[in-house]
């Protein structure tokens, strides 16, 4: 028995080591380019010569502002329909049990199993040859929406399986209209999940390269600008861009974490 305990604790230590190594593997490159974005000597940046020149160069890049604006539009106008579609679907499928539930859930998560490259080229071909519209912001937004419906569906589903629909029934019994039930019972409880899905879709569409690239033609977004300059060798301004985006993403995720933490406390509990 003692040797089994000994084995178990050795196994546990091994797992901790693997977990820590995974975090180092995932974060060291991101932290290193953050550091790189602040130093003058990027090839061997020790000892550091601190500078902000890469940030100044980034701001001076000709299409940086247009790219930022377009990325923001793609993020926003993808996240809005993706969140609306998936919220409605999750509520419909969880609240009203039907025999199509399994099939519908499969349909909603199926875009996850289509790689971005294929979404990109197939929507390019479809838009260019069938719809007669290519190289437009709207084509990229539509293509990103199909993939991000799947992601936001999963985020909302993961949260709402814990939701107690009897709360809605109770409100109905006391004479609430379906609209009142939604606005006064369901929404106040599930909004963290919806906001989470919105943020996830926004971030994914904002940063997307493969789907957007094929649909945008010459319209710049932040990832396509980064792609363009990377092809001509490493440009330190990219480290500055990466740092800015990482900061935004990590603060959004920190906020999301906070919301889930507080939101979960409220799940299923409507104490007055």
């Amino acid at each position: 028995m003692a040797s089994i305990n000994h084995q178990a604790s050795a196994l546990k230590t091994g797992q901790v080591v693997l977990l820590v190594l995974l975090y180092i593997f995932l974060y060291f490159p991101l932290l290193f380019i953050t550091y790189d974005s602040f130093v003058h000597n990027i090839i061997w940046p020790f000892p550091p010569e601190w500078t902000l020149e890469w940030y100044q160069k980034l701001l001076g890049m000709s299409d940086f502002h247009a790219g930022l604006k377009n990325s923001f539009y793609i993020g926003l106008f993808t996240a809005i329909p993706a969140t609306l579609f998936s919220t409605a679907a999750v509520i419909g499928l969880l609240k009203y049990r039907t025999r199509w539930r399994g099939g519908m859930i499969l349909l909603y998560i199926s875009p996850l199993f289509v790689p971005g490259l294929l979404i990109g080229i197939s929507t390019l071909m479809f838009n260019a040859n069938v719809m007669g519209m290519s190289g437009k912001l709207i084509s990229a937004i539509i293509a990103n929406t199909t993939e991000d419906i799947a992601f936001s569906f999963l985020v909302i589903l993961a949260q709402l399986v814990r939701y107690d629909w009897r709360m809605d029934e109770a409100a109905m019994v006391f004479g609430a209209t379906p609209a009142q039930v939604f606005w006064e019972v369901t929404l106040p409880t599930i909004w963290p999940a919806i906001l989470g899905a919105f943020l996830v879709s926004f971030i994914l569409a904002f940063n997307n390269l493969e789907i957007s690239y094929y649909n945008l033609g010459a319209i710049p977004t932040l990832p396509t600008i980064a792609w363009g300059s990377l092809r001509h060798g490493i440009k330190p301004e990219l480290f500055a861009l990466a740092t800015v985006i990482n900061m935004l993403v990590f603060s959004a995720i920190a906020g999301l974490f906070f919301l889930i933490q507080t939101g979960m406390v409220r799940f299923g509990y409507r104490g007055e």
Partner: peptide, 15 residues
């Protein structure tokens, strides 16, 4: 890290 975008993560890996 998944949310910071493929391109920027590959850039980081290249460094």
């Amino acid at each position: 890290p998944f949310f910071t975008g493929i391109l920027l993560r590959v850039t980081a890996m290249q460094q």
